[in-house]
Write a protein that binds this DNA or RNA. Structure first.
Lengths: 308, 308
DNA sequence: TTTCATCATACCTTAAAAGTATGGAATGAT
DNA sequence: ATCATTCCATACTTTTAAGGTATGATGAAA
């Protein structure tokens, strides 16, 4: 079987036109090179070089072999280099998953833009889905990293990192009594005792739902839940329609800005909504690694905002 | 260093998705394959496959590697196949040299045409030159085979094969006395005793020249040589101009058909002109070999003609 | 003719690839 | 839940083949 070694030998011999120098260049002695060439010629059934007292000269068959050798070796180098580029994150694909509530966070456009700028040759694929879909996608490697709003059940080699923990705000219809008299120093949870709550809860995801209910219980009342929607945005739609109030992450304030009024909670309430980055600890290509690092930097930057 | 072996391994593992089966397909045991893969991953610094209880699954880096592997191996196969085609004579180049007198032989268009038909993918290069130029070209491998009219001095590994031995004829100007009364049964050499001869002799080539002079001596006279030209065609020009007569191979009759009359010699004269095929016994690619075989077949076919 | 350069051959050494035996982890059936 | 099964990984041994050393043969140049 012809191996790369043989091709390197052909190139060295053809370029040096001298077995001894070619061997030196290949880092071996001359006799092994003689044998290497001889073996190759035997296998192919042609002389690739003519032996002269002054050195080696290519035959036509040898010239053809040389051409092929350059070609194959170049492709080989390219192949290895392509893989290395992927490892270094300079090329390849990065698939990022979001829950739709995560999509709303203002840090995301920043992160994606910054990433694109730094790694222009890495293709980004954005996928939307709920937490369980995203977790499945992670396991199947359909997505490399995902942003979710709830901590995900522990699965081996899936890492969950908190990126931002932002305050939650009360979302009320424009016509609601609280929309008019926004209390200085923030609203206290207890003041919502008599309100109809619209919360969101997907099948496997009871993250924010549970956080909110627990907070209400802590404030001394059981929230009257008028409606459950599968998604945060759906819940806000219902709030806009005047069906009740909700508690949402601060970063949702941009939505339904006309019909919904967002009221900060009192600082003592400390009801926060996390934004998590989830990924598998395997398959750490450069692009993925860099994205994670960048997310961590974002955490610091927005950490200050969240603490406001 | 990544070797072809590694690429074959990647392909087998990716296609079988199972180390054991891949190893079987590669004709080795599973543990060596595990090590092969591991070594490659270590060298590249990436996992190419994820190990599952059910088998192996490509990572993105692995997918890139697989793509490259197919590519490199395909090129490798092509390279080897190209060389083999050249060996078999199905591809490549064949350079054929001629002295201009050889070019006139009617068998040549036949040979070239037949060769082209049988080996359409072999490029033919035709070169004209005198015997010594052609011999030099042979040694430098600028031409693979050459047709000459004179036997070439012995040089190691240069083979000379007689292709056709054709009768010589007397070439006289249209106005010459012999042009009118062509003797039945052919002209005898002795009848040319009083003629002016125009012969041809290149620097290193005294083949036909010597043959003719010897024949005249054998017929009892020393030819009166009026003029020497370097080439046979040049000599015929002079004959056409009425400067004398010449003796030329039968196959030259097509030239100067208007101004020169060709008279057969008597059958007893047996003055013949050879056409030789010359080639080096090294570098026997298929195309060259086939061309030589074909020339030998032509010899048989035209052998009958020459004997007329 | 001698020397020098260059490739070939014979023989030995070393390194690396392959084989064997076995262990460990995950899956699926009883 | 346990056990058998399927796969991949590891440790150790054997085999193969690539590489090294010494030397010979050959042809060109001085």
């Amino acid at each position: 079987m012809i191996e790369l070694r043989h091709l390197h030998a052909v190139i060295a011999i053809a370029e040096e036109r001298n077995l001894t120098r070619a061997a030196e260049r290949l880092g071996i002695q001359q006799p092994p090179l003689t044998r290497l060439l001889k073996g190759m010629e035997q296998e192919l059934g042609v002389q690739l070089f003519e032996r002269h007292a002054r050195g080696m000269r290519l035959t036509p068959a040898g010239r053809s072999m040389l051409k092929g050798a350059y070609d194959v070796i170049e492709r080989m180098d390219e192949t290895v280099e392509d893989v290395r580029r992927i490892v270094r994150g300079e090329a390849g694909e990065l698939s990022i998953g979001f829950t739709n509530s995560a999509l709303c966070h203002p840090s995301l456009p920043d992160m994606l833009g910054q990433f694109r700028e730094t790694w222009p040759d890495v293709g980004l694929t954005l996928t939307e889905g709920n937490s369980s879909q995203l977790l499945g996608a992670l396991r199947e490697d359909t997505v490399d990293v995902a942003f979710v709003r709830t901590s995900i059940p522990y699965v081996s080699d899936v890492v969950v990192e908190l990126i931002v923990e932002e305050p939650m705000v009360v979302a009320v219809p424009r016509t609601h009594r609280l929309a008019k008299e926004a209390p200085a120093g923030g609203l206290k949870l207890a003041e919502l005792e008599d309100e109809d709550f619209i919360l969101y809860q997907s099948q496997y995801n009871n993250g924010l739902y549970k956080t909110i209910v627990d907070a209400c219980l802590g404030a001394g009342f059981t929230p009257r839940i008028r409606q459950k929607g599968p998604q945060l945005l759906a819940a806000l739609n219902l709030v806009a329609g005047g069906l009740g109030i909700s508690l949402v992450p601060q970063s949702m304030q941009q939505h339904h800005a006309g019909q919904v009024v967002y009221i900060p909670l009192s600082s003592r309430t400390a009801l926060t909504a996390p934004l998590y980055l989830v990924f598998r600890s395997v398959r750490m290509t450069g692009a993925k690694l860099y994205f994670i690092h960048q997310a961590r930097r974002i955490r610091q930057a927005y950490g200050a905002v969240a603490a406001e």
